[in-house]
Nucleic acid binder design. Structure first.
Length: 593
RNA sequence: CGGGGCGUAGCGCAGCUCGGUAGCGCGCAUCGUUCGGGUCGAUGAGGUCGGAGGUUCAAAUCCUCUCGCCCCGACCA
């Protein structure tokens, strides 16, 4: 491709509202163009990267017997009503009507349509198992897109779905896609870790997220350097300290004027925060066990003062659909007082009381007295209050002990670039996707669901591979592998002629060349070269031409040398092969953790 | 949805406090100059000042409403 004909522009300065590196570079290098919050055009260079990433996905998916399909982006409401998600999902789902006033939605994901397809085709165990995948647009009307391409509303996802006759089959496939995902990310030059994750509203029994570690990530992960335990903070476990086994003291009220925070309370009384109990007031949306109707339930959570409530754990513990903070009026209505809350003296008939298992074992804590400016000393579980549920509901944090080996956990931030779920029969059962087994018994298909966001992956690669000058593309997904820079001037037409010859020669050799034939000064071309991040830069100037060489420079590490023009295509191909092989060396078997 | 910031040419910004000809740099076009890390000079094109309403002789500037974008939080099947 001739750069003089390439549809793109580089920006010397990044748009002011782009903050993170990948967002700035995506815009500055002319890879994408924003048209609305979280909605982007892919320009030719960006499109080429996207296509290369998708080709890698196809290869890896095909290697585990995936079959590519394409499902629609506009879905009839009926399918989503069958699984109930039409009603469960709120404003994140974009809905529309056709001319006959029938309801449709834009695809947020494709479990429904995929299950519907399997239902139509599968009738016998003989047809199972199989894996379908697609690379298709999703639309999720996120409340807050952010970070350029990290969190968008419209995006392309490689989503795959496995269909097995039983859980054994799913369990057998799961490690294969786990490995395939590692291969995909590593072939794209992206180092990821897999962490256990919440199955959330997707349902299912096991899930992993593939996280690219970066400070701009939205998720917090806890990692153990001792045994390799890793989990999303939403579900991370940790070994809690054993509370001191002392006698319960007599409860007494203490005057604490204006002290309505844990930090303030600890300072006021001269005690550590771990000697206090924290009350958190929430309203849960729960489904009534008998009627199946949704209702709001006041949830009173008690955790030790030095710990943070983990809302995901609490949500799962009480099987809530969602949680929101309670209002001051709602808190008062159950007999508690915000800032001075405790389980003592509240109207227990109106609340579900959930205590963390650490707070229930800790003696003589300081807790609120449920009236302004007063707290209780020596509050003890069992004697002073009891809970409906006692379980782990606090968030693991940096420094907490690993649940397996006790090593201090490390907290890092990551971007979720992929996830894999054992769905089970949630969708097949609700939609009637069944098969007949050997005995002629009808059984629901056992499913799994596996996704990778391509744009997010692309942005994450830039986050990892850039410097102050621009992008440093891994050769496997670079828009072009070679950038040929001609330093021809009006006085050196022979350089231009030679560059043309080289461009033709390399292109004919099957090398993807971007040829900077623009009438620009060397500085402009070199700066654009650094910004665009093409892995191999070939520079042809008058001096080099006279000596019969082109200058070669790797964007990755700045390594440079001279290549004889007589064997240029072979030499360049050798470098391409070596650089590609280097990425291949990162591939290795991964045991499911 | 709560908090904060910002909308003036493709990009980066000034002008707004105190109402009176819409500016600067980059980029773009033409000509010349220069030619291995964003040359230099000249000329030029490009703007409903996000939108609507109001105040005023007069609004980018003051007032009201509204739309959009970014950041923090909430949320995120």
């Amino acid at each position: 491709m001739r750069m003089s004909k390439l549809f793109f522009q580089t920006l010397r300065e990044a748009p002011a509202d782009a903050e993170i590196a990948s967002h700035q570079l995506l815009l500055r290098a002319g890879l994408v163009f924003p048209i609305a919050a979280g909605i982007f055009d892919y320009l030719p260079l960006g499109q080429r990267v996207k296509t290369k990433i998708e080709d890698i996905m196809r290869e890896e998916m095909d290697a585990i017997d995936g079959q590519e399909v394409t499902l629609p982006v506009v879905h009839p409401a009926d399918l989503w009503q069958q699984t109930g998600r039409w009603y469960d999902i709120g404003d994140d789902m974009a809905r529309l009507k056709d001319r006959n006033n029938r309801d449709y939605c834009l695809a947020m994901t494709h479990e429904e349509v995929m299950t519907d397809l399997a239902k139509a085709v599968v009738s016998s165990y003989r047809q199972l198992p199989f894996v379908l995948y697609q690379i298709q647009t999703k639309f999720r009307d996120e409340p807050r897109p952010r970070g350029g391409m990290i969190r968008v509303r419209e995006f392309t996802m490689k989503d795959a779905y496995s269909f097995d006759r039983d859980f054994d089959g799913l369990d057998a496939f799961y490690p294969r896609i786990y490995q395939a995902y590692f291969n995909i990310f590593r072939r794209c030059g992206l180092d990821v870790i897999a962490v256990e994750s919440d199955t959330g509203m997707m349902g299912g029994t096991m899930a992993h997220e593939f996280m690219a570690l970066t400070p701009v990530g939205e998720d917090t992960l806890l990692l153990c350097d001792g045994c390799g335990y890793s989990a999303n903070r939403q579900i991370a476990l940790f070994r809690k300290p054993e509370p001191e086994d002392v006698a319960a003291l007599v409860r007494e009220e203490v005057h604490t004027p204006g002290v309505n925070t844990i930090a303030g309370l600890a300072a006021f009384l001269g005690i550590p925060e771990s000697a206090t109990a924290k009350a958190v007031f929430l309203i849960a949306e729960v489904q009534d066990a008998e009627s199946g109707e949704l209702r709001e339930q006041f949830v009173f959570a008690v955790v030790r003062g030095d710990m943070e409530l983990n809302e995901t754990k609490l949500t799962n513990a009480i099987k809530a659909r969602r949680l929101r903070p309670a209002t001051a009026e709602e808190i008062r209505a159950i007999g508690a007082e915000a800032g001075y809350g405790s389980p003592i003296g509240i109207d227990r008939s109106k609340v579900v009381l959930v205590a963390d298992d650490l707070v229930s074992r800790s003696r003589n804590l300081v807790a609120g007295a449920n009236r302004p400016d007063y707290h209780f000393r020596n509050v003890n579980y069992g004697r002073d209050y009891t809970a409906d549920i006692v379980t782990d509901i606090v968030a693991a944090a940096e420094g907490h002990a690993c649940p397996h080996c006790g090593t201090a956990l490390r907290a890092v931030r990551g971007v979720e670039v992929g996830n894999i779920f054992k769905l089970g029969t949630k969708y097949s059962a609700s939609m009637g996707a069944t098969y007949l087994d050997e005995e002629g018994v009808s059984r629901p298909i056992v499913m799994g669901s596996y996704g990778i966001g391509t744009g997010r992956l692309l942005a994450s690669v830039i986050e990892h591979h850039h410097d102050e000058l621009g992008i440093k593309w891994p050769i496997t997904i670079a828009p072009y592998t070679v950038l040929l820079v001609s330093l021809a001037t009006e006085r050196t037409p022979e350089v231009a002629e030679a560059a043309e010859r080289i461009y033709a020669e390399l292109t004919q050799a099957g090398i993807e060349v971007l040829y900077d034939d623009r009438n620009e000064r060397a500085g402009v071309k070199f700066n654009d070269a650094d910004l665009l991040g093409i892995p191999i830069r070939l520079t042809l100037g008058a001096k080099g031409l006279a000596a019969g060489v082109a200058e070669m420079k790797l964007r990755r590490n700045g390594e440079s040398g001279e290549l004889p023009l007589s064997r240029l295509a072979d030499e360049v191909q050798g470098i391409i092969d070596a650089e590609t092989a280097l990425i291949r060396t990162t591939l290795k078997p991964e045991a499911l953790s």
